[in-house]
Computed example of a mutant assay.
Amino acid sequence: MLTSVLFDLDGTLLDTAGDFMAIIQAMRADRGLCAVDPERVRPAVSNGSVGMICAAFDIRPDQPGFDELRDDFLNRYEADLALFTRPFPGISPLLDWLDDQQLPWGVVTNKLSRFSMPLMEEMGLARRCSALVCPDQVTMSKPHPEPVLKACSAMRVEPKHSVFIGDHLRDIQAGRAAGMPTVAALYGYLPIGDDPALWEASHSVTSAADLRPWLEQRLKEK
């Protein structure tokens, strides 16, 4: 049985790497540094601003200058957070199908509300999304199940009849801890060295277009 779907945001629902890379390249140029290889930064997107800053500037969070870099990055992102961001291929028709089936869908993310809420508005998804849970709205963020359970409560659905889709181990851990089937989005921002086969997800897909057939099968189950 399927009554609803939950998505992680960055790397699962939306491809946000383009905006992050534009900001990082501009920051490096302003500091007289050459452009960084995007493939060095992309796997760190799921680890947030800390991971991306460390990868892009070869710096640790405890080193001098890190806080200034992170503040600059976040301020630039808040000002321009949807210039290059797009839904992953296959996501838009999937959301249309979920709406047609009257299956509510939501987002559980570790991206703060100050970024997630305006981003969803800019992408035209805020009014369609039945629940958006950010880390500043809960006491424990993913991989703890609290934000996933909060989203299910907001949508008035049972976790066991929902599905959580994400591109990071913590997404799968949060979904499993909440008693939900899970899907590993292998098309997302997989951290270097991670082996999704060890995540113990219920299912995995290499393209967002592959999600609908699996969800349709669960919808038929009683």
Rank of each mutant, 00 (worst) to 15 (best):
R76T: 00
L81N: 11
Q102G: 11
F88M: 04
L112H: 15
R76E: 01
G90L: 02
W105N: 02
N75F: 05
E78R: 13
Q101Y: 11
D58Q: 14
K111P: 13
N110Y: 08
L112P: 11
G90E: 02
Y77T: 00
E68D: 09
G106D: 11
P89Y: 12
P89Q: 10
D99N: 13
D99P: 00
D96A: 13
L112E: 14
D99Q: 14
D99W: 06
W105K: 02
T109N: 12
K111N: 13
Q102D: 15
F88W: 10
P118A: 06
P61H: 07
G106M: 13
S113R: 15
P104D: 05
I59W: 13
L83K: 09
R86H: 11
I59C: 15
L98N: 04
Q101M: 15
R70Y: 01
V108E: 06
L112N: 14
G106S: 11
D62R: 08
M123G: 06
L119P: 14
D80M: 01
I59E: 10
P89G: 13
F88L: 03
T85A: 15
N110Q: 07
R114V: 06
R76N: 03
T85H: 13
Q102C: 12
D100C: 02
R70V: 02
R86K: 12
Q63R: 10
S116M: 08
L112Y: 15
G90T: 06
L95E: 05
L98A: 05
D100K: 11
I59Y: 15
D100H: 10
L74E: 05
P64Y: 05
R60L: 12
D80L: 00
E122D: 05
D72G: 01
F115E: 12
W105T: 02
D96W: 00
L95T: 05
L81G: 04
P93I: 00
L95Y: 12
E122R: 04
T109S: 15
D96G: 05
S113L: 05
P61E: 05
V107S: 10
D58A: 14
F84M: 10
L69Q: 02
E68K: 02
P104Y: 08
V107G: 09
